[in-house]
Amino acid sequence: MPIPFPAPGLNVVKALGEEPAFKAGDSVRISVRYPVGHYRVPAYIRGKLATVDAVMEPPAVNNEEEGFGRNAGCKGHYFRVAIPLTALWPGYAGSLLDSLRIEVFETWLERV
């Protein structure tokens, strides 16, 4: 039988960032930032509203830090988010149902 985690009676306080900041269904906004360097958030989604589709497990190294050879202790969560194509592209010609799905690292997401 698997041991429940945390085991009963243990009062474990999680460190900041251990738990995902958002859950499926949350509304988020993708940050509008234009830092110098290599970034994995395409410009066309910055500033857009999105809905969290799923939390990506396990937490992963921040690719943008890794790109500069820095990865110690900077694991965090990626979130798969959904954005309607009609919200991305004014005058989008396809169906209202059509959507984009993309994973965004938590440092780029703002709570709405």
Binding site: P42, D98, R101, E103
Partner: peptide, 14 residues
């Protein structure tokens, strides 16, 4: 038209 097109843009580890 009644089928959703879902475009997934891979950018990082997925």
């Amino acid at each position: 038209e009644d089928v959703e097109i879902r475009v997934s843009d891979s950018t990082a580890i997925q």
